[in-house]
Design a protein around this nucleic acid. Structure first.
Lengths: 234, 234
DNA sequence: TAGATTGTTAATCGATTAACAATC
DNA sequence: TAGATTGTTAATCGATTAACAATC
């Protein structure tokens, strides 16, 4: 875990000077560890289908990773298989849970109950992964009438809920203009990790983990790749 | 652009053997190019605020990238600045558009008008980025009554719309169980690029670009990073 | 045993950082 | 000019691939 030095920078906007305190880099999870997350997702799915054993090349093929890479990753985290029968699915999942300290559910909250907020609230993939959305928040009081398993509260109750459920990770799914405000509030209430869906880079201190998910970027990179095909240099 | 060799693999599920033709790796956009996308997003925002000029350290700070990295990236794509006055925002944006061949709008479609599909349909960040959602599709005919700028069609009209608007990129926002079916259909109708929000790895041939956006993984990596803080080794 | 598969080490590749020269 | 900033080359770091030995 590296701590970067704090650099203050400034921008000139219409001859007014603004100071930018410091930016946190994207959640710096090692590639190998992200792949472990990927393998786990795949294994949970295979397990649900009744698969008992996998080989490195099976799992690799399932996740789009080479068999060598899978074994290399397993080796890094001391996950052992059997040189004849591959890996037992349930054992693998267990070992991965240990890596992620997944002893129990992780309580998270979602701020903003618009479309993205609602997608997340209704996303049933989370239960399997022990991600537990305890509440969502929205400034619009009419949103509280939404019928859903996951409650919608006004912003006033944020601190209370964060404390009660010992929430450390929050999702920001509010419009860009208020994302920074919400972020500051969350940090003030003790949140350590943020998944940010607003297309702005949040200004936070170094001790806060931020993962920016930019949907436009994800789509644009595909559009770009597609525009390259056809005009190949051989 | 690299073309991988085709490897056929098989899995045993309840003593039935399934063959997996080939998996496409995640949209393999170079890191530097992804950052160009990131810079562009930031520059568009700054431009809207009235910012005329940026320095490498300003833009770096805005995007969470080091100033050296910014200059290195610019150098790779032959983007030149002024050794005294930094870079002109409008000129930068223009040069980035050229890199992405962004001469005109890119028509895309969204399959699945659930929560994620609707988020995307209502996401106003796309217009600025010249991403143009021409239609959404859903099997549920009642969804066609949704009031929105972007129409909802039944699956039957997919081919027609793809042809008419020359769509090459599609977004899959359907439940996991049908994602592969939808994918196969899209490919049959001539789609070259897919952004997949279903938590399954799609099986496609090598010539199709797939970018898997897994929301659980994004959240989990933050949860993991957060769980690490506090137990630092110094 | 022979063969298939794991597990690890070494070699390569790509991406980031550091250093500094060029220049407005 | 002096100073700040760009732009590029070299050094380092990390991640992937290749090769192969270990073993069930």
């Amino acid at each position: 875990m590296k701590f970067e030095k704090i650099i203050a920078t400034c921008v000139e906007i219409n001859s007014e000077i603004f100071f930018i305190v410091k930016i946190n880099t994207k959640c710096p999870l090692k590639r190998s560890l992200r792949r472990i997350l990927l393998y786990r997702g795949s294994l949970l799915r295979l397990q649900a289908l009744g698969v008992k054993r996998v080989y490195s090349y099976t799992l690799g093929s399932e996740t789009g990773v080479s068999a060598e890479q899978v074994r290399k990753d397993f080796s890094e985290y001391h996950i052992k298989g059997n040189q004849r029968g591959g890996y037992r699915v349930d054992k693998l999942i267990g070992e991965m849970e240990t890596i992620f300290h997944n002893n129990g559910n992780h309580n998270i909250i979602v701020v903003g109950r618009g479309n993205i907020g609602s997608s997340l609230a209704n996303y049933n993939n989370f239960i399997q992964r022990q991600i537990n959305i305890v509440a969502t928040f929205d400034i619009d009081p009419s949103k509280q009438r939404i019928r859903s398993d996951i409650p919608v509260y006004t912003m006033e109750r944020m601190k209370e809920i964060i404390d009660r459920f010992e929430v450390r990770t929050a999702i920001i799914a509010v419009p860009d203009m208020v994302a920074q405000n919400v972020c500051d509030q969350l940090v003030k209430y003790g949140i350590d990790g943020i998944v940010n869906f607003a297309p702005v880079i949040l200004k936070v201190t170094d001790d806060i983990i931020v993962n920016n998910v930019n949907l436009s970027d994800e789509i644009e990179s595909v559009i770009y790749c597609v525009s390259l095909t056809g005009l190949e240099e051989f």
